[in-house]
């Protein structure tokens, strides 16, 4: 009977979580809570599956042992032993699948980080340490800003540096710094691996999509707490216009809307070192 309960728990975690966590729009207001719930239910599903397997093996071993002592029905121990071995087989196959998918992902990621390293070699014109993280400014005339978690570096193009004010530039850096600091790269890797192992499963796709969106909102919110609503909203708005990216504009509207509702903290001044780099020396 406990096994049935565990199987129900797994089913709820796999099928129920995506439905439960995508009801309404509360995730946009509470992205950290939503992210924590997604990962808690994912972990609960994994633990449930692992415990179910261990339990079935234990029951099989126990049934096998007890069949010598008592008058157990002849077929029951056989079925239990087969079920136990089948569980071990599924476990082994799962491990093999995860390892194979993870290896492909690691090779792809390493390739991308190699490309980033080459880009840094040939195009970096300035490097800074902001909040303890290396920020590389590359001579590229395109609106590009990203964090590369594998090599722990934030890359900002000269176009972005020239376009934004020091406080806006700082907001972008703090946004990217949040990704590195809170290990968002690992969260995204986990969901990518999950999707790669369970292709076509709606729950896995929703988990991956939700994580991609929630990490951006969490990073926006932390940048707001450090740099203020105006700097983050303005940086998002300018880059949304340059990229023609509607989702960035909506993120800017969300941040600006939070200022009206009184959430957030007083902004700090941008570090002096950024004033020399950014396009508008007087800030916002």
């Amino acid at each position: 009977m406990p096994i049935v309960g565990l199987i129900v728990l797994c089913a709820v975690a796999i099928l129920g979580a995506p439905r439960l966590l995508t009801i309404g729009t509360w995730q946009i207001r509470r992205p950290r809570l939503a992210m924590a719930l997604w990962h808690f239910l994912f972990a609960a599903g994994l633990c449930g599956a692992a415990v179910t397997m261990v339990w079935s093996v234990w029951v099989a071993v126990d049934a096998n042992a007890s069949s010598h002592d008592h008058n157990t029905a002849n077929l029951l121990p056989l079925i239990m032993v087969i079920a136990g071995w089948a569980s071990l087989g599924v476990f082994g196959a799962t491990i093999a699948l995860v390892m194979q998918r993870a290896e492909t992902m690691v090779v792809d990621d390493r390739d991308v980080y190699g490309n980033v390293a080459t880009l840094l070699d040939v195009a970096t014109y300035q490097t800074l340490a902001v909040s303890g993280t290396k920020v590389a400014f590359v001579d590229v005339q395109a609106p590009i800003a990203f964090a590369a978690p594998g090599i722990n570096v934030i890359v900002i193009s000269s176009f972005v540096a020239d376009t934004l004010s020091p406080r806006e530039l700082w907001a972008v850096i703090e946004h990217e710094h949040t990704h590195l600091r809170q290990r968002h790269g690992w969260s995204k890797r986990l969901t990518r691996l999950n999707s790669a192992c369970l292709p076509g499963l709606m729950a896995a796709e929703k988990f991956e999509r939700a994580t991609s969106m929630l990490v951006e909102l969490i990073a926006d919110d932390r940048a707001v707490r450090i740099c203020g609503h105006d700097a983050v909203a303005s940086a998002l708005h300018k880059l949304a216009v340059l990229n023609g990216n509607e989702s960035m504009q909506l993120r800017a509207d969300r941040v600006a809307g939070r200022r009206c509702s009184g959430r957030g903290t007083t902004a700090l001044a941008a570090p002096d070192i950024l004033k020399a780099l950014a396009g508008e020396p007087n800030g916002l």
């Binding site: 990203f146 995204k188 999509r209 991609s212 951006e216 990073a219 990229n243 989702s247 909506l250």
Partner: peptide, 20 residues
């Protein structure tokens, strides 16, 4: 593999943001 400031939001995410 990278965490882009522009994000990588799907159409469904954009709809959710709009609704919110």
């Amino acid at each position: 593999a990278l965490l882009n400031f522009a994000g990588n939001l799907s159409d469904d995410d954009v709809d959710l943001l709009r609704r919110a």
